[in-house]
């Protein structure tokens, strides 16, 4: 039982790494996703946004992480350029790959929500003489937020799980520590089950927070469930 105790403690001590990676990636990915959606509105930048989404949704995140960490970092301009101090850090590379990958998924969620806003509302806003920014601030953004929230929340849960892939490039997150403990103790099953419990706790907490936000954003107070 002593082994399980120290292992649990070790895993819990790695939770901040996982949470930090998750929060930073969620922030980065959401910002990039907003930019991608904006780019899709203009004809000139549409192609680039589409290509971005195509590549990052069409390949595994694990491969993208390896590509950033080993592939891109080994290129001359990166290896010998001013960006190296950042690319040198595995946590940064994991963050960069996750930001790029998840931005593509979140952009699709936002685009879907944007398409769900009735055209009539926009026309009405135009008729009222609202400018572009007022329209975005008062009509579009609040509705996109509310409409996108369930799917966006799903993406966030996926992201917290995806942070475990960072362990494959030497990041000592919860999964990384679990693998290290196993390597030194050869006790595979119980350590992985403990790690699974830690993740289950994190995703459950996130889901609870999301549900609360969802409920508070619902104007009629009748959100499902």
């Amino acid at each position: 039982m002593d082994f399980l105790g120290t292992t649990s403690l070790g895993l819990l001590r790695a939770v901040p790494v996982t949470v930090l990676l998750f929060l930073a990636s969620a922030l980065g990915a959401s910002l990039v996703a907003a930019v991608l959606v904006a780019m899709q509105q203009a004809r000139v930048t549409q192609g680039l946004a589409r290509a971005w989404i195509f590549v990052f949704r069409g390949t595994p995140l694990l491969l993208q992480i390896f590509m950033v960490y080993y592939g891109i970092a080994a290129l001359g301009p990166i290896r010998h350029g001013f960006l190296w101090p950042a690319f040198r850090e595995p946590l940064f590379c994991a963050w960069l790959a996750m930001t790029c990958c998840c931005s593509a998924y979140i952009a699709e969620v936002l685009r879907g929500a944007l398409g769900a806003i009735p055209v009539g509302q926009i026309e009405a806003a135009l008729a009222c003489g609202m400018g572009r920014w007022t329209r975005l601030r008062l009509i579009v953004a609040p509705q996109v937020l509310r409409l996108a929230l369930p799917a966006y929340g799903n993406e966030l849960v996926m992201m917290i799980k995806s942070t475990s892939l960072a362990s494959s490039i030497t990041v000592l997150d919860v999964t990384g520590v679990a693998q290290q403990v196993i390597a030194h103790s050869y006790r595979t099953l119980d350590v992985f089950c403990l790690a699974a419990a830690v993740y289950l706790g994190m995703t459950a907490a996130l889901t609870a927070v999301l549900r609360r936000i969802e409920r508070s954003l619902d104007p009629l107070g009748s959100a499902p469930r």
């Binding site: 799980k161 942070t163 999964t175 595979t188």
Partner: peptide, 22 residues
């Protein structure tokens, strides 16, 4: 559903890979 959607896929693979024979 709750467990499988709340645990990283990587852990499920590792768990099964190491645990399946037992």
């Amino acid at each position: 559903g709750l467990v499988m959607r709340g645990v990283p896929e990587l852990l499920v693979v590792l768990l099964l890979y190491f645990g399946a024979p037992g």
